[in-house]
Design a protein around this nucleic acid. Structure first.
Length: 442
DNA sequence: TCTGGGGTCCTAGGACCC
DNA sequence: TCTGGGGTCCTAGGACCC
């Protein structure tokens, strides 16, 4: 048996931990740059606000209902997520952290053990739900079923129908069949924007309909083995296994840092400053992964929403002679790549730096290949930079090319973040101070 | 005026090898 | 006149997830 634990309206729930008076009110959290709505409280959903709606479109409705709106506060959400995941690691035999707000549990063997103790998986799920709420103040739901895809499906039903009190265990074939009838095909894990309309045109409306298609049909219409796995999983045949915490020791394939600018930018120094800053950020990520990269992509994009026709994005990929994790070296390549892309008189709205061809690479490998007597010192320099920036905050020490002009001006590209709450749990200056009878508590 | 960010996997097709 | 078979590696593109 697999369980899927999913935090309800996660970002909104994180904000409510520190502002309990927001309970019962419509609340939304915005994406980077205060662009789109990416988390909604139940009250906001009831207003008809859809996931991913641009904020400016929903603002009149939100204002009319006195809704609270927050910029995203990833330091906070990341920390709350870690608390939930470490709780799960203590109460479940095996945990796979699937996203910031979801985890799969492998409950093999649990059922017999619980029955032996006159309990059940449903009771177990309810206990987890109650304890996570009480200790971390985050509401969750849980679906339990013989496959991951069915656990996702059960979770969806548990979330929608209050009858289940947030926990649904599909403990028999009959219950699985019943559950499949409840869920539209568009809500099946793995069926997205493209496949859903196609399936509906073929008369496949529910998850139950999808579970009945033939293997050949699934392969032909749903992207080969991927579709086949979805169908089998719905039929109760496990095709997806738990992924161990180290990802099976598989290194990642890419790291990226991309951002929409706060305003359109045309001047080369402004765009160079952005691309340089993104390069240093992505290089930091790369070193945190313990990798080196042998390809670097820079892209810059025009607005997708203006009168201009596509293409909107211009990108340039360089193959590096030797894999590297040195910020200064990556900056040199990024500059070259950008120079070939930028067109005078054009306004750009977004840029990004993507590193691919990642290989596990530390100091030893650099020494082996780089014909430089300074390789070891350079690696040490990067380590010191990372140490300083971790301790005193990102960007404390950087490279001059990140600045847009000689006056040290930086950040014409910086996005909006006008409604961000404090990093209550991860930044000392932002920790609450409570003054009780003249006694200051940090 | 204002429209996010960062990943994954799979397939098909081309270049190349013996 | 008749022109094989079996691989690998890489990339682009298309789908998906949160």
């Amino acid at each position: 048996m697999f369980a899927l634990v999913d935090c309800n309206n996660f970002y909104v729930s994180c904000e409510r931990i520190f502002q309990p008076r927001l309970e019962g009110r419509p609340v939304v959290v915005l994406s980077n740059n205060d662009g789109c709505i990416v988390s909604r409280s139940e009250e906001a959903k009831e207003l008809g606000i859809k996931m991913g709606t641009p904020y400016f479109k929903a603002k009149p409705l939100l204002d009319a209902h006195d809704a609270r709106v927050f910029s995203s506060n990833y330091a906070l959400y990341g920390d709350i997520s870690r608390r939930v995941m470490s709780y799960l690691a203590e109460v479940a035999p095996e945990v796979e952290v699937y996203s910031i707000d979801e985890a799969f549990l492998d409950l093999t063997g649990m059922e017999q053990w619980l029955e032996h103790n006159r309990s059940s998986l449903t009771e177990y799920g309810r206990r987890l739900k109650q304890e996570i709420k009480q200790w971390i103040h985050v509401p969750i739901c849980m679906g339990i079923a013989p496959t991951k895809t069915l656990a996702k499906l059960a979770n969806r039903i548990a979330k929608k129908d209050p009858m289940h009190h947030g926990v649904l265990h599909l403990d028999s074939d009959a219950r699985c069949r019943w559950a499949l009838e409840q869920v539209g095909v568009e809500d099946v894990w793995g069926i997205g924007r493209q496949y859903a309309p196609m399936l509906q045109q073929h008369g496949i409306a529910t998850a139950a309909d999808l579970a009945r298609v033939s293997d050949v049909w699934a392969r032909r219409h749903l992207g080969g083995v991927v579709g086949l796995r979805i169908v089998r999983e719905l039929q109760g045949v496990p095709c997806l296994e738990m992924i161990p915490p180290d990802g099976g020791a598989q290194p990642r394939h890419s790291v990226a840092y991309t951002r929409t600018f706060g305003q359109p930018l045309a001047a080369y120094p402004d765009i160079l400053s952005a691309v340089a800053t993104f390069t240093t950020r992505v290089a930091e990520k790369l070193r945190r992964q313990g990798c080196a990269a042998n390809m670097l992509t820079v892209f810059i994009s025009k607005s997708r929403y203006g009168p201009a026709p596509p293409p909107y994005t211009y990108s340039n990929t360089l193959s590096l002679p030797v894999a590297t994790r040195d910020t200064a070296e990556l900056l040199r390549y990024a500059r070259v790549a950008l120079k070939q892309l930028w067109q005078p008189g054009t306004s750009y709205k977004k840029a990004g730096v993507i590193l691919t061809g990642l290989e596990p690479g530390g100091l030893a490998q650099l020494n082996l290949f780089v014909d430089s007597p300074h390789a070891e010192q350079r690696a040490q320099l990067m380590a010191e930079l990372d140490k300083l920036n971790t301790r005193y905050g990102a960007g404390t020490v950087g490279f001059a090319v990140e600045l847009a002009d000689k006056n040290g001006c930086k950040g014409a590209w910086a996005g909006k973040k006008e409604m961000r709450t404090p990093a209550y749990t991860t930044s000392l200056p932002e920790v609450w101070r409570i003054n009780i009878d003249g006694l200051l508590l940090g």
